[in-house]
Design a binder for these strands. Structure first.
Lengths: 160, 160
DNA sequence: CTTGACAAGTTCTAAAAAGGAACTGACTAT
DNA sequence: ATAGTCAGTTCCTTTTTAGAACTTGTCAAG
């Protein structure tokens, strides 16, 4: 299975990963949530090659996660901003950051990214709760079931 | 910057992505949470090449996300299970699934993965809340700040 | 009016990673 | 003895990425 085919699979997880399931893409998105918007800024901050950055930004725009808008004409300069769809990825990034802060933190330095909840003003970490009863949930509280959209597609990826 | 250096950066996000920021790794983890434990099962379900699967499982074991334990001797057969550290990735996978179900679902098929909250018995989606005040949060409610662990490291990745 | 700088790319080659298929080794079941 | 299972490894080809230099349009300084 190659990655071009992944976005055509009737499995939303596979399709999600065809958009953001890439090392650079996730780091780019982390920087987007930090307010970075310009090509040069991404490049200098991340140490990504320009070629790959061009490619990843293009894909994110195609997938409606970022929008490319000019912030000046003469000369034309573009910037990349998160769309609503892109902003909706925030829980993914937050939980990634939280896991990193918990399990991958270098003791010498402490957590590199901190989240402040504007309305209560405190430093926070994300707590995942149940949309139905509101209780916090962990992996053991959840049963994962295969729904209507699965349809044996991932089970037999070779047949395509 | 190459990926071998990423895990040495004093930035927990970069280090997190050095472990799981990879297309196959995330799909493997999705299957782990579905209960898949054996090499052959991963391979046939995912359409991953055996070489890459070997490599990714090895890395996940090295990073203490999975444990490799024999489930029989004669002949020795190994299986891969999530550790506590691995189980702690569940919010990441859930939010990924939720985003996919919301924005990437094929209308013909519907959501491929469904989460059931065991204690309340209902189908649920993850709601990210503030650990301090308990209110649900979205991207706009959060201010991201650079903490002590950042230290200009990601800003100047080339200097290493 | 030429030189330099800046932003946002594109082009080139070499190195690394992934794909694809066949092969191994230690068994088990027919 | 023959075929099948599982958990890999080996070999070769194709694709992707790294790294550095080059391009294009514009302004600003000397």
């Amino acid at each position: 299975m190659r990655w071009e085919h992944l976005d055509q699979e009737p499995c939303s997880v596979a399709r999600t990963l065809s958009v953001i399931g890439d090392r650079w893409t996730l780091i780019i998105l982390r920087d987007c949530f930090l307010g970075v918007r310009r090509f040069e800024k991404f490049e200098s901050r991340l140490g990504i090659t320009r070629h790959v950055l061009t490619d990843r930004l293009k894909k994110l725009v195609q997938n409606d996660v970022l929008v490319k808008t000019p912030y000046q004409e003469k000369p034309r300069r573009e910037e990349y901003r998160l769309t609503e769809k892109g902003l909706a990825l925030h829980p993914v990034i937050m939980s990634l950051v939280h896991w990193g802060n918990t399990y991958m933190t270098d003791d010498e330095h402490g957590a590199p990214l901190i989240h402040i909840h504007k309305s209560c003003g405190h430093r926070m970490s994300p707590v995942t709760t149940c949309s139905h009863c509101g209780e916090p949930v962990t992996a053991r509280d959840i049963r994962v079931e295969v729904g209507a959209g699965w349809e044996g597609v991932v089970k037999t990826p070779r047949t395509e």
